[in-house]
C-alpha cells in the first residue's frame, strides 16, 4: 500500500520564482490497485511521482510504502521496492550492454553487486522464457546491445527488468509517450498483462485519455496539485474519453487558458 500524507512541496521557496505545487496533498493507493493518472502540464503529476521515488523530497508531510515510512529514504534505497519506467526510453537500460547482461544485472537487484560473475549463463533460458511471450523476438537477440534496439524494444526490456524482482510499487511515467502509435498500443497491452499477472500496485501517468479509461481500476485527474477527479468502481467504469475531455476543457476555461 502506498500512502502520501499531508504533503507540501514548494520549488524555490523564498525566491521570486517560488512555485507552490502541492499543499496538504494526500493520496492512498491500496495494495494491488492499478491507478491511471492524467492531468495537464504543471498539474503536479511528475512532482508526485518524483516524491514517491525519492528524486525530490517534500517540505512537509509523510510518505509510506507497505506501512513503512520512506519519507527520508534516498532514491536508490527506495528503488529496491519501487520499479520505475520512464518516458525516455534510454533511461531503463544500459546501451553498452547486451540484453542478456542488462537482464542479468536487473536479476540481481536488491542484492550485492560484488566480484562474482555478472552473467549467469544458467539463467539464460529463464530470461528467454520471460521475453518470449512478449512477441517482439527479443529472446533471439540475447547478445545484441541494448543500444541498438528500437525505442519500443528498449521500453519492453525496461518493463521486464523493472518487474523481474518483487516490487511493492510500479511507477509508469508516461512510458508510452515517446513511442509511435502502434508500438505505444503494444507496450500498453504488455504493461496491462504484466501488472495484472503479478498484481503489482501501479501508478501510471499518461496523456493518452483512451489508455487512461481503458486500463486500470482507478482514474485520477490532477489539477493544480489536487485530485480534481478520483474515480473508481462503477463511476470509473462508466467514464469515457469525452467526459474527460469535457472536464479538461472546463478546467482550462477556469484557469484562463
Amino acid at each position: 500500500m502506498l500512502k502520501l500524507e499531508n504533503i507540501y512541496k514548494t520549488y524555490n521557496p523564498g525566491l521570486i520564482n517560488e512555485t507552490k505545487v502541492l499543499e496538504d496533498f494526500s493520496l492512498t493507493v491500496p495494495k494491488g490497485q492499478f491507478v491511471t493518472v492524467i492531468g495537464s502540464n504543471g498539474s503536479g503529476k511528475t512532482t508526485i511521482l518524483n516524491l514517491i521515488c525519492g528524486t525530490i523530497f517534500p517540505n512537509r508531510g509523510k510518505i509510506y510504502l507497505g506501512g513503512k515510512d520512506i519519507t527520508a529514504m534516498t532514491e536508490y534505497r527506495r528503488a529496491k521496492h519501487i520499479g520505475r519506467v520512464f518516458q525516455d526510453t534510454q533511461k531503463g537500460t544500459s546501451p553498452n550492454m547486451t540484453i542478456l547482461e542488462n537482464l542479468s544485472l536487473a536479476d540481481n537487484k536488491g542484492r550485492f553487486y560484488g566480484l562474482t560473475p555478472g552473467v549467469n549463463r544458467k539463467r539464460t533460458n529463464y530470461y528467454k522464457e520471460l521475453l518470449a511471450p512478449l512477441g517482439l523476438g527479443l529472446e533471439d537477440k540475447m547478445n545484441v546491445l541494448a543500444g541498438s534496439l528500437s525505442g519500443g524494444q528498449r521500453q519492453v526490456l525496461a518493463m521486464v527488468m523493472c518487474t523481474m524482482a518483487d516490487i511493492d510499487l510500479l511507477i509508469l511515467d508516461e512510458h508510452t509517450a515517446a513511442l509511435d502509435p502502434k508500438t505505444s498500443e503494444l507496450i500498453i497491452e504488455l504493461t496491462n498483462k504484466i501488472v495484472r499477472e503479478k498484481g503489482i500496485t501501479t501508478l501510471m501517468v499518461t496523456h493518452n485519455l483512451r489508455h487512461a479509461v481503458s486500463y486500470g481500476d482507478r482514474l485520477i485527474m490532477f489539477h493544480r496539485g489536487a485530485a480534481e477527479m478520483d474515480l473508481s468502481g462503477e463511476a470509473r467504469a462508466n467514464v469515457d474519453v469525452d467526459d474527460l475531455l469535457d472536464r479538461f476543457n472546463h478546467i482550462s476555461i477556469e484557469s484562463g487558458n
Binding site: E75, Y76, F86, K91, T93, A106, N108
Partner: peptide, 11 residues
C-alpha cells in the same frame, strides 16, 4: 552509460 539505471537497481 546510464546513471539512472544504477539507482534503479538500488545501488
Amino acid at each position: 552509460a546510464n546513471e539512472q539505471m544504477v539507482k534503479s537497481l538500488s545501488v
